[in-house]
Design a protein around this nucleic acid. Structure first.
Lengths: 252, 252
DNA sequence: GCGATGCCTTGACAGGCATCAATGCCCCCG
DNA sequence: CGGGGGCATTGATGCCTGTCAAGGCATCGC
């Protein structure tokens, strides 16, 4: 027990330092194993806003973890139009889609000044081979990436613009709160155009929706600053909404 | 060389019998390794049309490979609306999204009479641990699932309905042809409503688009029978289209 | 063989969202 | 401090596509 607890603390310390907790935190691995993992991780210097971590088509060698600052990843259609795949907050992985063909399937672009940890994938596979729990965790993480995209597909294909925006706001709220920030007041790391692109909408529509939410007393928006005034109502908008009932006291 | 060639034949035979080639074909694994893999695979009896392979929320224990017949997988929104994630033709995998939470994130429904191979995932992980090449292949396959969904996201978010349909038809064409069927004449395994759902459209829109393609001389459609008359033009519709140029001789 | 059911097609219509355009704001930079 | 560019908001307009409705056509079951 004490050893376990000590190991865990070691992990938390090790990962806390580079926000790699998605990869190693849930594991019951020993300190020496962690050392193994730590050895292969590169910590990069801060990258300014508007730079590429990698581009679609670049040879795939590493996966990345945002350490501080937000990143967007996106693919480009042959006609040049872009689709944002996701926003990556500190602690979140990116780059796992490059394994298929050995080249990145999406590009990653910094939304603000960003620090990342880079994990060479072949080395990670080696280490994972020695640590079954890490192996399993790696598979789980890939599976989660699949699930995440499936949810987004559902959103783009079947949900109203209103609901899509509500879901995104809730997702950001939850993720910020998990990282120790306020769940109700935060700064959007991305531009309106990025939000619109991600949600499959026009920037103007996002603007109008935000206004509508504001007029309804659900949000207070000032530029990129968001204050969620009525979280239950926002949840209702994201979920059970459909008929225009003002939503009962909210429990679902 | 002769041993290699012999091994490869062994693999092909083994996989041919259950269409598992996506999992093992590209591997340089020995006959005994294949035996290991073969041992854990269950071959199911044929399943009639309209049955569930698994449902969203079911405990995740296995991944599946369609052996014959087509399957659709889809998720359900809280309000009951469905989003089809993908169609799975013989030889194609499904179920890889269940690992995250230990329950399937999507449901799988047979579109016609279907035979599947079932591969218990924990056993697969065991075997993979003993065969590094298989391990790598497993990760690659998951990565490909991610990539596939990213492409679909691009389609749903940024492409015109016309292009979405063209892309789907091309995809089916390619996949049928890879399986030894005609690339230009085939039967759609799914209903119009399924196509529409998958593409984020109304069934009527799909109908109208098919008619438009037909009037343009690109397709001949009769119920579920499709005959691609002008493959280059269909490619143009799927890709470079955008301006209404009748598309030059087509090379892209 | 006949009715019923589901699927597909076609038409009419309205509404929502994209598009275009103009203005304002803020921040960066000169 | 003043100019410029990017970003955000707001308004006007129109098209596309979803929705509703009806009809045709196969297949299946009785």
């Amino acid at each position: 027990m004490s050893t376990d607890s000590f190991s865990l603390r070691g992990i938390q310390r090790a990962c806390r330092s580079c926000s790699l907790h998605e990869l190693c935190l849930p594991l019951g691995v020993s300190d020496t194993d962690i050392d193994l993992l730590e050895k292969i991780v590169h910590r990069s210097r801060p990258l300014p806003r508007g730079k590429f971590l990698f581009r679609e088509g670049d040879p795939f060698t590493s996966i990345f973890v945002a350490r501080s600052g937000a990143v967007k990843s996106f693919t480009v259609a042959p006609d040049g139009s872009e689709q944002i795949i996701g926003f990556h907050l500190p602690g979140e992985l990116l780059g796992l889609d490059g394994l298929t063909e050995g080249v990145h399937a999406a590009s990653a672009h910094t939304l603000e000044t960003v620090s990342v940890c880079e994990v060479p994938f072949d080395r990670l596979e080696d280490v994972a081979r020695q640590i079954p729990a890490l192996q399993h965790q790696l598979l789980r993480l890939m599976s989660r990436e699949i699930t995440r995209r499936e949810e987004q597909l559902l959103s783009l294909g079947k949900q109203s613009p209103e609901r899509r925006l509500a879901v995104l706001l809730l997702s950001l709220s939850m993720r910020f709160s998990q990282r120790g920030y306020s769940a109700t007041r935060f700064l959007l790391p991305m531009a309106r155009l990025d939000i619109a692109n991600f949600l499959g909408l026009a920037a103007e529509t996002v603007s109008r929706l935000l206004r509508r939410f504001q007029d309804a007393g659900v949000l207070a928006v000032d530029g990129r600053a968001v204050d969620i005034l009525d979280l239950p109502e926002l949840r209702a908008l994201a979920g059970a909404e459909g008929s225009e009932e003002p939503a009962p006291p909210s429990c679902a």
